[in-house]
Design a binder for these strands. Structure first.
Lengths: 140, 140
DNA sequence: TTTTCTGCAAAGGTTTTGCACCAAT
DNA sequence: ATTGGTGCAAAACCTTTGCAGAAAA
């Protein structure tokens, strides 16, 4: 199901600003801050305002069409999501981000921590940071 | 080595405000936001100001005496650190936090992601969220 | 006494809120 | 025609900076 149909089904409207923001996020391979989304979005929908960016992000986040990640310089940056619970690997050189699934290793880790602490774990935040192949060359 | 000796060795001063902030953090079992640290710290050192809290946190963070974690409601919250690279498991019910080491599972996961993506991974952010044993009872 | 640290005030950011107008249905 | 959405302005926060006075060493 696509996001436009999803919003319609919820009785919400498909508007120019919302299309612009979604378009920007879908085109980005790097997590973007609200301000960056504004700047890029204004190239699509000239009158776009920052307030609408915030409101749209929080809407899209509720429906899991976008996801918030933590960047060192701007604590709140947004990415479109792949289906399922995935994690971000972010390049410290160029900001390029790729998604990856947690997999069995993470499940095992969580089970061990549950056993040791008695906590019932129901969510996690995992992000990896490093250098992408391109940036490794540049620094070599 | 304790933090007071560490600061002295660096030519920095042990002051009332710094003692108050460290005392608050050592007594806390929950990650605290700068504002929360201020409020608790003022009970120890009445004239403590928010600016000093920020400056002291950034100082202590540089020396790894405290560590920043991400709380849902306040992006920047601080904890005293255990030695080594450890992670936080935070209770969604009461905010209680415990530390745990990543262990082999995390190392394996990172190696696999490196192999699959070609990235060279040099840092990570991992936090777990759940219910502590006490809060599980309350909700049962 | 010397230098660092502190608190205040103010500046710089980001995020939220109130409201009248606009636009999707 | 009805609602919900938008942008503007302003408020509310959070974090950083400049500076004169206070306090460690």
């Amino acid at each position: 199901m696509n996001w436009e149909k999803h919003l319609s089904d919820e009785g919400l409207r498909i508007t120019g600003p919302r299309r612009a923001i979604m378009e920007v996020l879908l085109a980005a391979s790097v997590p973007l801050s609200p301000r960056e989304i504004l700047e890029r979005g204004q190239r699509v929908h000239r009158k776009l305002g920052l307030v609408t960016v915030y409101r749209t992000l929080s809407l899209l986040e509720q429906f899991h069409w976008v996801r918030r990640v933590h960047r060192e310089d701007s604590c709140h940056a947004y990415l479109t999501t792949s289906p399922g619970h995935r994690h971000a690997l972010i390049c410290c050189g160029c900001g390029q981000a790729v998604d990856f699934p947690g997999g069995d290793d993470l499940d095992t880790l969580i089970e061990r921590v549950e056993a040791r602490t008695g906590y019932c774990i129901n969510d996690h935040l995992l992000q990896l940071f490093g250098l992408c192949p391109g940036c490794q060359e540049t620094r070599a």
